[in-house]
């Protein structure tokens, strides 16, 4: 039954083979370049550029309740310039962890005490996203 149906249908249906092939071919042709590009650049492509990192780090610091946003510049020191204490510094580092989806080990986190160091660390971190 099924095979009979199949053969009847196949006998009556005509597919314009040449046309679809060229269509597919042209689609493939245009798409293949992009695909190859994605394949070869999978790592470098999604790495953040320095300006974006810098802007996002500064946003995090500015949104911290105790910080005066007008004082925040890329090379500001958390404790000396912004008047924060060590606990605030840890809090900012945790906020950065959340923003960039990282887990910064304690030893590294202790060293981050200024915006410049934070930007540097996040920029050099391969998993920052």
């Amino acid at each position: 039954m099924a095979s009979a149906l199949r053969s009847t249908i196949l006998r009556h249906i005509r597919i314009p083979v040449s046309q679809t092939l060229t269509l597919n071919g042209s689609k493939l042709g245009s798409g293949s370049g992009a695909v190859a590009f994605r394949l070869f650049s999978s790592h470098a492509d999604d790495h953040l550029d320095k300006e974006e990192v810098s802007a996002r780090v500064l946003d995090v610091v500015k949104s911290f309740p105790k910080v005066d946003p007008s004082k925040v510049t890329p090379d500001v020191h958390f404790q000396k310039d912004l008047g924060l204490d060590s606990l605030d510094t840890v809090e900012i580092v945790m906020a950065l962890e959340e923003e960039f989806k990282l887990e910064i080990p304690d030893k590294e986190a202790d060293k981050i005490d200024s915006c410049a160091l934070a930007i540097e660390y996040v920029y050099n971190h391969p998993m920052a996203g």
């Binding site: 060590s86 606990l87 840890v90 809090e91 945790m94 962890e97 959340e98 887990e103 304690d106 986190a109 202790d110």
Partner: peptide
């Protein structure tokens, strides 16, 4: 204390 604070922060999500 800082270790505890980090632990607490990481369990917030």
């Amino acid at each position: 204390t800082f270790e505890f604070f980090r632990l607490a922060c990481r369990s917030i999500p």
